[in-house]
Simulated scan of single mutants.
Amino acid sequence: MSTSLRNYLLDKAPFLTACVMLVAILATYASLQRGVFSIDELNLVTGSAMTLILVATGQTIVILRGGIDLSVGGMVSLGTVIAATQFGTDPVNIVLWSSAILLLGFLIGAANGVMINSLQLQPFLVTLATWSVLSGVAMIILPTDGGSVPDWWIGFGYSELLGLAGPVWMMIALIGFWFWFKSTRLGTTIRATGSSEKSAFLSGVSIMRVDIAAYGLSGFFAAAGALYLTTQTGGGSPIIGKDYILPSVAAAVIGGVSLFGGRGGLMGTVVGAFILILIGSLVFALRISSHWQPVLSGMILLVAVLTSSLTEKTAKGQAQ
């Protein structure tokens, strides 16, 4: 085996491991349930996974930078309650509020980036505090689950074009965005800064701008996830965002995104998100206790972390 091929397989080992796990889960699920490989099932599973995929997209960008963003949970909650209480029925009003929610997500994320960089604080602590603040504001706006969005807005989440549901087209567009983004100067500098902040700085990269962009995009995609989530729930919830914090990190890590920064991509994160969603379906098909779902998720995450760690150690050993 040539050195270049060996290095390529080594770099892709975590992602390939995730793909193998997804195939294994699908094969087991298909043996228990009919129609697993149908278009209808694709539409259904993608619809269930889309919120997680959107939130995990922003999380992927931050992890590639070498950080972590816990505030996505607060942004998802805040986004849903704002939408549920302010949308009304006027399409123009809905467009304006949707834009405001997306902008708010970016600004809050950018503020995280500024605090982390300028104050040299740990991303975990800063985003944990931001999560608490946003969750509190969401509770003030809407103390309990409620509010509403128009029926046509809910219908968007179930609409179809050429047999494929809206969420599938959203996922395709998101993947297209990623292939463009990772080749841009910003995408390259985020990955380079995650690999070696010192080298990036010496190369003339503005670490402040990288942090603002990375965390700003994380907030933006969390807000987008909140908007999509309202098409599934039909209302808002001040606590629902907590369900996407650790899963968004897990989806990225399972898909091969290195917690050390600099390695991985959205395709792996999408695979990781589908794995997490399908585990629930598999547990149901096996007719076993739902308590096994977090057990299986944890085992898969452990395999992913071990694979990533072994890859990092092997790569460092070859470099020395």
Rank of each mutant, 00 (worst) to 15 (best):
A84Q: 08
S135D: 12
V137Y: 08
T85D: 04
I101G: 12
W97F: 11
P143M: 12
I140G: 03
N117S: 15
S99L: 14
P91I: 13
S99Y: 01
L128A: 10
L142G: 07
L119K: 10
I101Q: 09
G109A: 11
G147F: 06
I108H: 06
F124I: 13
G136W: 10
L96Y: 07
L142K: 03
A138C: 03
F106S: 02
A138E: 08
G88L: 05
V95P: 01
D151S: 15
S98F: 01
T127W: 04
L128D: 08
A110K: 00
M139D: 12
I108K: 02
G105P: 02
L102M: 14
P123W: 06
T127M: 06
V114C: 09
A83W: 03
A83V: 06
P143R: 11
D145F: 05
N112R: 05
L119R: 12
W97S: 07
A100T: 00
G105R: 00
L142Y: 07
L134F: 05
P143W: 11
A110D: 12
G105E: 05
F124D: 04
P143V: 09
T127G: 10
G109Y: 02
V126W: 03
Q120L: 10
T144A: 12
L103Y: 07
V95T: 15
I140E: 13
L102N: 11
P143L: 11
F106T: 05
F87K: 00
N117K: 12
N117H: 15
T85W: 02
T89Y: 06
L119F: 13
V114R: 03
M115S: 09
T130N: 08
G88W: 04
T85I: 03
S98M: 15
L128I: 10
S98N: 14
P91G: 11
M139G: 07
A84S: 12
G147D: 09
L142Q: 13
D145P: 01
A138D: 03
G146T: 08
L134K: 06
L103Q: 08
A84K: 00
A129E: 09
A111C: 13
V114T: 04
D151L: 13
T89G: 00
G136T: 08
I116S: 00
Q122I: 08
L119V: 10
L96D: 07
P123S: 13
F124V: 09
G147N: 02
A111N: 06
I141Y: 10
L119G: 06
Q86A: 14
G146A: 10
G136L: 11
L107I: 13
S148I: 01
V95S: 08
N117E: 15
G147S: 09
G105T: 10
Q86S: 14
Q120F: 04
V126F: 01
A138H: 02
